[in-house]
């Protein structure tokens, strides 16, 4: 159904939109740029990998487990690290650095886990091609169909949660005005905890999805985290939908853009694949210092309409 470059691109873009959405959520609730998203994503991949290696079957059935494990990692980070620092009104930079420390500890645990898996169970966890365990669907890899659906489902669920449930609305209220929310009897602690549950889960799920299109390694998340951030920043860091969209754009741009360029300019450009999304982020930031959210969409639409009318008359 899809050419291979587009299939891979869709999987990667779905993964980035999940992770960038999580980063955005954590930033707007707790002011924390979560570096630990890197190893949380890697952990998500390894959870799916481990369960698949030991129990076999359809690998997609283990994705919810990855999500739950990511939530657990998020809860630990919130209770052990983020909450005390938020109480102390620590600066953005301090919050950011604290998650970096957490990330490095998770990374070392992942590395040790890999050693353990290969020593005790004779697995090869350091270079995993998960797509080999994927199956075909409508003449293309199942991942390229299922993972965008996963991203859309998560987005829909999140939207319903945030607009239809009392707790979801209270999350939005806390994001906008924590003091007024608290004075209304909303416990911001619960809101923050919830955002770590969702954000951590999305990170791990994103990592598991990502391993379906790239080689899974212990430093997978570490390598990709600039792109997760790029997606979040592109989305404007103001609402989750922006983050999800930004991640998708960055992911797709990397695959589709590089394919296009390789055809136009020559295959040597393939080596710079990793550089492309960063370039896109840089250009966007220079034009719109507040990301996609900073673009005045309605104004833009208005002027396009007017231009059309002008052309007609």
């Amino acid at each position: 159904m899809f050419p291979p470059w587009l299939a891979g691109g869709l999987v990667y873009a779905s993964a980035l939109s999940l992770t960038a959405g999580g980063i955005t959520l954590l930033y707007i609730t707790t002011r924390t740029f979560n570096f630990a998203h890197a190893s949380m994503a890697t952990f998500g991949f390894y959870i799916t990998y481990i369960f698949y290696s030991f129990r076999g079957g359809n690998l997609y059935q283990y994705l919810p487990l990855s999500f739950l494990f990511g939530s657990l990692l998020g809860i630990i980070c919130y209770i052990g690290l983020n909450r005390p620092l938020l109480k102390r009104q620590a600066s953005t930079i301090t919050l950011m650095m604290s998650t970096l420390g957490y990330d490095l500890i998770l990374l070392s645990i992942i590395q040790m886990l890999c050693d353990y898996l290969s020593y005790t169970f004779k697995l090869y966890p350091r270079r995993v091609t998960m797509s080999a365990f994927d199956f075909e669907m409508f003449g293309t890899s199942a991942a390229s169909i299922i993972t965008p659906l996963i991203a859309i489902t998560i987005l829909t669920l999140l939207h319903l949660f945030l607009t239809r449930t009392k707790f979801g609305i209270s999350m939005r209220a806390s994001i906008e005005n924590p003091i007024l929310a608290s004075a209304s009897g909303i416990n911001s602690d619960k809101v923050y905890l919830m955002s770590w549950v969702i954000g951590g889960g999305m990170a791990a799920l994103g990592g598991a999805v990502m391993s379906l299109t790239m080689t899974g390694t212990p430093v997978m998340g570490m390598t990709v985290i600039p792109y997760m951030f790029a997606g979040a920043i592109l989305g404007g860091l103001e609402n989750i939908y922006g983050g999800i969209l930004g991640g998708f754009i960055v992911g797709l741009a990397e695959y589709v853009g590089i394919y296009y360029l390789a055809v136009k300019v020559g295959p040597w450009i393939l080596g710079y694949r990793m550089a492309l999304p960063l370039l896109i982020m840089a250009i966007t930031l220079l034009l719109f210092p507040r990301g996609l959210a900073g673009i005045q969409w309605s104004y833009l639409l208005e002027s396009i309409k007017r231009a059309r009318k002008g052309a007609k008359s």
Binding site: L81, T94, L104, I105, L106, L107, S108, I109, M112, Y119
Partner: peptide, 23 residues
Amino acid sequence: LWGIDPIWLEFTLLGLVIIFIIL
């Protein structure tokens, strides 16, 4: 004994140092 290379403790050290200082 579990096949784990203690070299990874370097990362653990770095992470713990950062967290300890901040907290």
